[in-house]
Design a protein around this nucleic acid. Structure first.
Lengths: 222, 222
DNA sequence: CGACTTCTTGAACCGAGTCAAGAAGGGTGG
DNA sequence: CCACCCTTCTTGACTCGGTTCAAGAAGTCG
């Protein structure tokens, strides 16, 4: 948290590939490359993520980055104009397939759920330790992906670099790395080449102050 | 952040006075005492704060507390049922006067603004230092209260204890205290007996990575 | 004037950051 | 298929922002 010069090498994700839209095919499916900023030159629109992960992030003028949340396969994403990286913009973390969302049904519910995730995030950042933050987040992913049928035999694909974890959890990359080492040593999880398996979900939930309360109750009401 | 026994003496604000509603007078004005939890046994309702400050907070099972946001005079507050202190509930920080909000006009705008504040809060917690967090927050209060005509000669009333700052900014009370000492020594602010005066708003904004962007632009659109 | 919050301050400790450098992956082109 | 390059992951050593514990001073309210 040196207060001078937070000149991170710009997130590869943002730097290396131009935010270009690629190959729009029939059925109104839009594809983006990893690293693309998802904007709408046109009117605001609502899309559903068919595959891939998106995050919403802000970049401060001195280079510090904060990620606000993730959009997972099956989730919907509201794209509003006039949002740039110094306020908050959606960025593709992987190759993406988006589809225009047909009806607005469930929009209110999606908003509630998103708000609940944001509240949980505030608690993580404000009151949890590094280890708790990491576990808490992985448990959230577990529940969200499970609801979407994307958890198999207790494990799921997790296409995030440690830098992305750092920018989401408000920690440094180095400390994220060390935290993951500890969790592995604990036997809390297995994490390798883009997949995680959590050992004993309930015990971990207790250890990380994770409560499915808000998010999932609201989710079930859908 | 000790991972064991976060047994804070329960926030006086929560402990000392029972969350009782007091003296409902004509014109549908409701009063609460400081420390009251604002619930709705009835249907969800929307109220406008005539005077006093409210916060929304969650209390973890081990006693750690996190405050999500503040509702200032002039702001509206949506009260939904089924929210308790372990998820997120509004609590009166001072004596309060609430009024039933008449029309729903501006409800969408209020929600946008609240979301923008929450995003700023995430940045504070995730990426700013203690000094920056404090300044950033005081600047947000400045702008919000200024818009409500509650800033006089560059200063405003701020009825928050250091404990409340700590629970909002994700820091310890002791460190909040030391941070305020530093800001005073800097000449950044004058803060005494419930009032603040910020020296040179623009310079402080630069120092704290505060940008009125999101919040105020949306605000102005109203 | 008590009694209780709230604010301050000191000292010791530790979680997390920074700097730096090397190892391991993953694409790409020849 | 290998060589090269760039990104991502690891690890060590050191620093520092922030926490904890503790106790005393200053406010506030009945």
């Amino acid at each position: 948290m040196g207060s001078t010069e937070h000149e991170k090498p710009v997130l590869s994700v943002v730097r290396s590939r131009p935010p270009s839209e690629v190959d729009t095919r029939p059925r109104s499916v839009t594809r983006y490359q990893a690293g693309a900023t998802i904007d709408c030159e046109q009117r605001p629109r609502s899309v559903t993520v068919l595959s891939g992960w998106v995050c919403e992030m802000r970049i401060l003028h001195d280079g510090r980055r904060q990620i606000f949340g993730f959009v997972l396969p099956g989730d919907t994403l509201e794209i509003r104009p006039s949002r740039s990286l110094d306020t908050s913009a959606p960025v593709a973390l992987t190759r993406l397939e988006l589809m225009e969302t047909a009806q607005q049904s469930g929009a209110e519910d999606a908003r509630r759920r998103k708000e609940a995730w944001l509240y949980d995030h505030v608690v993580r950042l404000g009151r949890l330790t590094a280890k708790e933050r990491m576990l808490h987040l992985l448990l959230e992913f577990y529940d969200r992906l499970d609801a979407a049928g994307l958890v198999t035999a207790g494990s799921y694909r997790l296409p995030l670099t440690q830098e992305v974890f750092a920018d989401y959890l408000g920690l440094s990359v180095v400390h994220i790395n060390r935290t993951i080492q500890q969790l592995r040593a604990d036997g809390s999880l297995v994490l390798r080449s883009g997949s995680v398996t959590l050992a004993n979900r309930n015990r971990l939930a207790a250890k990380a102050c994770y409560e499915l309360q808000a998010g999932s109750e609201i989710g079930r009401r859908a």
